[in-house]
Write a protein that binds this DNA or RNA. Structure first.
Lengths: 139, 139
DNA sequence: TCACAGTTTAGAATCATTCTAATCCCGTTG
DNA sequence: CAACGGGATTAGAATGATTCTAAACTGTGA
């Protein structure tokens, strides 16, 4: 009961802190994304999910929101498939297994994998991030 | 002069060996792709290039050919950008620097980088390939 | 040379994603 | 608490890369 009132501020605070106005749509999407940990979604899958939950949010807003959350550091975009973009709720240092046939991503903790020998980038360039994708297939 | 006759078979043999009928278009594209080493092209860029060389090849054929060459093991597809696919003429073990702002890929020799600690994939899955992308930006 | 299976191609179609312009609503102000 | 102002949402159009389709074309073996 007090639940609604008491928890109302949760996602709201998170969004405010990120400089995003806590609108109904953003609160709903944040609720789905950050309720459980380490989720991997596509715009389409998240839209289906929020729609399935009986909440009306346009696909355009899902795209906008995913990008805004990404810019705000709440999500990380994962590029592993030419066909679609994934967004990961785990923004920490980690890598992925990718099962292309099923569009499935599995986290690999950052401490697990070590990439050694990355050469210095050409003059005028600096390293932004090192991504490792372990592509797997059904045996 | 004998050049045309003598060299005619080069790309042709390569294509035949790959199980691909050496058509005018495939020979032209293979010529551009494999004349110099370690090239990174997109369908669009290769189409512009072949067209600029005065050869008439449709964009659809460029796409078909890139995929056929990839399946035949002559090319490797590189997925680093959500917007477009790159194809790499270097099919050996190596990784990449990627300068997103300019759509530029730079090879990193395979021996240079070492990825340690890749965990065993979940049951029923086996590792296909480990890709490392070092994302860089202008300083 | 003939015939046919594999190729090419123009243009339509598709798919994910972005844009547009109108409408809506969050938060502040009076 | 109503009005307001600017950011947010949205339906639908637009875009851009890629794929598909159906028809025309061309290597290649006989």
């Amino acid at each position: 009961m007090g639940k609604t009132l008491r928890e109302k501020g949760k996602g709201t605070v998170k969004l405010r802190h990120a400089g995003l106005r806590p609108t109904r749509q953003r609160v709903e999407l944040a609720g789905l994304l950050f309720k459980s940990c380490d989720r991997h979604v596509t715009a389409e899958s998240l839209h289906d999910e929020v729609t399935g939950a009986g909440v009306k949010v346009s696909l355009a807003t899902v795209y906008n929101t995913l990008h805004q959350f990404t810019e705000a550091g709440l999500l990380r975009q994962v590029i592993v498939d030419a066909a679609r973009s994934y967004f990961d709720t785990n923004t920490g240092d980690h890598q992925h297994f990718f099962l292309e046939s099923e569009g499935m991503l599995i986290d690999i903790p950052g401490e697990t994998i070590a990439v050694a020998g990355v050469p210095a980038p050409p003059p005028g360039l600096s390293i932004d991030r090192v991504d490792v994708v372990v592509r797997v297939r059904r045996t």
